[in-house]
Design a protein around this nucleic acid. Structure first.
Lengths: 171, 171
DNA sequence: TAAGTTTGTTTCAAACTTGAACCAAGCGGA
DNA sequence: TCCGCTTGGTTCAAGTTTGAAACAAACTTA
């Protein structure tokens, strides 16, 4: 079948999106590297743990929540463990399992970094959008994420209780 | 001043966006690695060159267009050069300058990879959006990109003629 | 219950990215 | 013209990511 090339509108949207994605991730990485000595992903690991029950999460759940590979997570957690920000425990029910936990120190680092991070997110994104656009953003990317849930039988958002909380949060 | 935390709506939008960004980039990288033996960025380098006048571009312009650092570009171009997909020329007007050019082979590789890439972009994104949402996407991220143009005095979209073309294109 | 399969995690080497340092080459003014 | 500053590009080491392979524990089923 002949290729369905992108229409001019689609192309403009795609390019704006790709450019933004690069710029935003870069800016976030730089800001967090400055203020917390870690890239965005590592901060997200801390933030995700901080919202989990008992601030603990199994490696696989953490990786799925963050949409990253297990091997990438292993590396990151190893580094964070060296820094004393997370710890590892064995899972009692499943001896294969490994559980990452946020340490007190990790929590402190997270809380110290959070305001600057949120400020940056606002400056880069939300300050430039109308309230309607915030809604549109959510709808668009929720649809995109859902698209992946058919493909591989990963957990759906509803299976992941710690991603449903509301109120103040570090990201 | 006290931190302006994200509202629940903003948080949902932000998380959906971050999750999507990770999923989409990953899927794109995997698809292109499979079909063209290179990650998405490298493909984008070829695509950008293919649209430039004479399929040539100065390193700095290329880096700015793709929103990446010069050093990252240097590394990527070196690899692509080894593969015979791009070449380097000296700039005649400015002896410091280096110009990347797309080789015939590079053009062939690009053309061979483009249909699959576009198909993937559709499958991941556009097939899941309404036409209105495509417009919203463009507006949102155009605003975000513009946000960066104040900060550092980079080229604006209008200064970059090869990003204004329309019609069929490889990304 | 042994064999074979799946699942959870780590490991390893190769590839890629980062940021600072470096080297020219242009540029502006005393 | 000489000096100091900026710009274009590369280099280097340290850090990160990737994907495949390795392991071990759980599950399945004959």
């Amino acid at each position: 079948m002949t290729t369905r090339w992108l229409s001019p509108e689609e192309q403009r949207a795609w390019r704006a999106y790709i450019a933004s994605a690069a710029l935003v991730e870069d800016a976030l990485d730089r800001q967090l590297q400055q203020e917390a000595g870690m890239p965005h992903l590592y901060y997200s690991i801390l933030a995700t743990l901080s919202e989990a029950p008992e601030r603990k999460l199994r490696m696989t759940d953490l990786a799925e929540g963050l949409k990253i590979t297990r091997s990438r997570l292993t590396y990151a957690v190893t580094r964070l463990e060296k820094d004393g920000l997370v710890g590892r425990e064995d899972c009692r029910w499943d001896k294969r399992g490994s559980i990452a936990t946020l340490t007190e120190e990790g929590m402190r680092v997270l809380e110290r970094a959070a305001p600057g991070h949120v400020e940056t997110v606002r400056a880069l994104l939300f300050d430039r959008l109308t309230p309607e656009q915030v809604g549109q953003l959510e709808e668009i990317f929720t649809a995109v994420v859902e698209g992946f849930q058919g493909q591989d039988a990963h957990a759906t958002a509803d299976d992941v209780p710690w991603r449903r909380r509301s109120g103040k949060s570090c990201s």
